[in-house]
């Protein structure tokens, strides 16, 4: 398997899927220049009809995406930063998420919305949001969050091939992460979590930008506490792999959910609720949530970084779950 960077894997998936279906188009702010690198080279390869810069008009960008998709195109709108989802939100929440139901199922809306999410880089409050809660609550859209180059490629392919509006949320600042990526058609099925590390004492449930530090935390737990932690990467937030979550906690009896969302109504709190409802008999301890406090992201690193989940916070939370073994 060739080794490549996260952003190259996304770029390769976009190119392969645009090659595969000539009705697929890519539109958005600066998709030609591509500040993240994910859409680089696609204009030259597929031409100005299929790869178009849009003005900074998010209401129109999302509305056009819904309209073009309802009329036979497979549309990939690039929102740049996830905070810009808010400026284009009517066509997301009221159109993409609802037109199929309102039409009685007459149409499909094959749309893949790309947006870069997350904090930690001093981009301040309006370029740092993790909009999982907002999107997963809509019901009419799918949401995927890649964590490594291989599933970045696989999830992008699955998102583009889906006949439903699907959000592909790129973890901010992770474009340079390298990893092995399968050649050609590697589609990661939507709605399937993956076990990244096996363990028997504790489930660390996470996604996207949080997986790397969660794996680090799992190693520390092994060496520092002798705790065997399983790491479950959700990959897809809608549909959510409830079966895998319950199976993992069935094996371990304990869960910590690591999520870059603000805590209120986060993916972490939703997973905790599922475990309380359906996994109660497995649980040997309360479910812990490692999230961002209900605060907007400040600019100064000294104020921003402590708000984000960290391996340190995960290890501390785990220690509280194993009071006897903790040293």
């Amino acid at each position: 398997m060739p080794r490549m960077r996260f952003i190259q894997a996304i770029n390769q998936a976009l190119a392969e899927e645009m090659e595969r279906d000539p009705r697929t188009i890519l539109i958005g702010e600066d998709v030609e220049a591509s500040i993240f690198g994910d859409t680089r080279g696609l204009l030259d390869r597929f031409g100005a009809d299929r790869v178009r810069n849009t003005p900074i008009s998010e209401q129109a960008l999302t509305g056009i995406s819904a309209g073009a998709a309802a009329c036979g195109c497979r549309v990939i709108p690039h929102m740049m930063f996830s905070n810009f989802i808010y400026t284009g939100f009517d066509a997301i929440a009221n159109q993409m998420a609802k037109l199929r139901l309102m039409s009685g199922g007459q149409i499909t809306l094959p749309i893949t919305v790309i947006a870069n999410y997350g904090g930690g880089r001093s981009t301040a409050a309006q370029h740092s949001d993790t909009p999982f809660s907002l999107l997963t609550n809509l019901a009419g859209v799918e949401v995927v969050v890649p964590s490594t180059p291989d599933n970045a490629k696989g999830l992008m392919k699955a998102a583009i091939r889906s006949d439903n509006p699907t959000f592909f949320l790129e973890p901010g600042g992770r474009g340079g992460d390298a990893g092995d990526v399968p050649i050609g058609d590697c589609v990661t099925p939507l709605g399937e979590a993956r076990v990244m590390r096996e363990g028997s004492d504790l489930s660390l449930i996470t996604m996207g930008s949080m997986t790397r530090m969660t794996l680090l935390a799992a190693k520390r737990l092994e060496t520092e506490l002798g705790v065997s932690a399983e790491v479950l990467d959700l990959q897809s937030l809608v549909p959510l792999d409830t079966t895998a979550i319950l199976a993992s906690v069935g094996r371990t009896g304990r869960a910590i959910v690591v999520d870059e969302s603000r805590d209120a109504c986060s993916v972490a709190s939703h997973v905790a609720a599922i475990l309380a409802d359906k996994g109660f008999d497995h649980l040997k301890a309360p479910v812990q949530r490692i999230t961002v406090p209900d605060t907007a992201m400040p600019y100064a690193p000294s104020a921003e970084l402590p708000l984000l989940p960290s391996a340190e916070r995960i290890v501390s939370a785990a220690k509280a779950l194993f009071p006897v073994t903790a040293k």
Binding site: R23, I25, D49, R50, Q59, A60, T62, G63, I64, S65, A66, G67, A68, A69, A70, C71, G72, C73, V75, D90, A91, N94, Q95
Partner: peptide, 18 residues
């Protein structure tokens, strides 16, 4: 949603042009 058809029709126009 008052005005939501504007974007959708523009998108339909894009599909038609392509």
């Amino acid at each position: 949603i008052v005005g939501a058809g504007l974007g959708i029709a523009t998108g339909a126009g894009l599909a038609n042009q392509l």
